[in-house]
């Protein structure tokens, strides 16, 4: 496990890729310094997540069995069997399990403070660039990527748009966004179920961002985990589609509580499903009375005008 990124699993590294980069990944780079006691030197191995150890040892406790690493002078050798003791040992090995010398240290810190701090750094950068940043969250399959494709097409000539795509695997979405005409970076989280502020911080450096644009961050499709991770966005947009249950806001209240905007997508399918838009809005407003709604169909583009109008207005407000 690597604590730097918190991704959880070394075998499923976080990768930050641009379309066409499948074979030469820019994964997170960080160093693991370690000391070799035998020679008294310390050195740092900068390496990537993709760096593999033949012995499969993930903790980087390198065993130096070769001749070049001699024992230091104060090295303690264990007594072997031939070395006899003729005096008796009488050590009373009493282990004090009450931890007589233990100390209580008050910590009183928020568990997510590291992420929140990085999110604030991102926010400062975005503000400096005059960039409107939206964090798009939803269940898988609600139509986030399709919404982005249509949005990119409609923004042509009106505003610069950049996209960070978050998925566990594949560059599929990044390829779609590139096709649609926007600069894009893909974050593959491996086993991770959400994006965090640190991943966005690294991904954004790979986009050549001009001032006064819009950055869309499409989070990993998941209505639970991304709710707790501030990325530094100006607005969080939760997307649900009418093929889902209309009680989603009650089942996943934290996501709706932390969002600013709710897009109800695939409204062209309303005649064929039991989704009650009024009920969904009412449930969502119970957890978040400030939530702003857009009902639209990305497919037929009905309702897209209002979304685009809001987007351009929100961008103007950021810059003023």
């Amino acid at each position: 496990m690597c604590g730097t990124c918190g991704c959880g699993h070394d075998d499923e590294p976080v990768k930050i890729l641009k379309p066409g980069e499948e074979t030469h990944a820019h994964s997170y780079q960080h160093s693991h310094p370690h000391t070799h006691d035998d020679e008294g030197h310390t050195h740092t191995h900068p390496h990537q997540y993709t760096h593999a150890h033949d012995d499969g040892n993930e903790t980087h406790q390198h065993d130096h069995a070769d001749e070049h690493h001699s024992h230091p002078q104060d090295h303690h050798h264990h007594h072997d069997g031939e070395h006899a003791h003729d005096h008796s040992h009488d050590h009373p090995h009493v282990h004090d399990h009450a931890h007589a010398h233990s100390r209580q240290i008050a910590v009183e810190q928020d568990a997510l403070q590291q992420n929140d701090r990085m999110a604030q750094r991102n926010r400062g950068y975005f503000e400096g660039k005059g960039l409107l940043v939206l964090n798009l969250v939803s269940s898988p399959g609600s139509g986030k990527t399709s919404l982005l494709e249509k949005t990119i097409a409609r923004l042509k000539g009106k505003a610069n748009i950049y996209v960070i795509e978050g998925d566990q695997q594949t560059l599929n979405d990044a390829n779609r966004i590139k096709q649609a005409g926007a600069p894009v970076v893909q974050i593959n989280t491996g086993n991770g179920c959400h994006l965090d502020a640190d991943m966005v911080n690294k991904a954004v450096k790979r986009l050549d961002i001009k001032t006064d644009g819009i950055l869309m961050i499409e989070n990993v499709g998941n209505l639970v985990c991304p709710a707790l991770f501030d990325l530094g966005e100006a607005q969080r947009v939760v997307v649900i589609s009418v093929t889902e249950g209309d009680d989603k806001p009650l089942k996943y209240p934290t996501m709706f509580e932390t969002s600013n905007v709710c897009v109800i997508n695939k409204t062209d399918l309303l005649p064929y499903v039991d989704f009650d838009v009024k009920k969904t809005r009412e449930y969502a407003l119970r957890v978040n009375p400030q939530l702003k709604f857009f009902e639209l169909s990305v497919k037929t583009e009905e309702g897209m005008d209002a979304w685009m109008e809001w987007l351009l207005k929100a961008r103007q407000e950021i810059q003023s």
Binding site: H99, H101, S102, R103, Q104, I105, A106, V107, E108, Q109, D110, A111, L112, L228, P249, L250, P253, T254, E257, Y283, L285, R286, V287, N288, P289
Partner: peptide
């Protein structure tokens, strides 16, 4: 639940006074 109404007047979206904590309070060390 976050969506529970006020038992007195039925209004939704109360101010959350407690329940959102995600904190490390203390550690005990040797």
């Amino acid at each position: 639940n976050l969506f529970d109404p006020c038992p007195e007047c039925g209004a939704f979206n109360p101010e959350v006074l407690a329940g959102k904590e995600l904190r490390i309070k203390s550690i005990n060390v040797d």
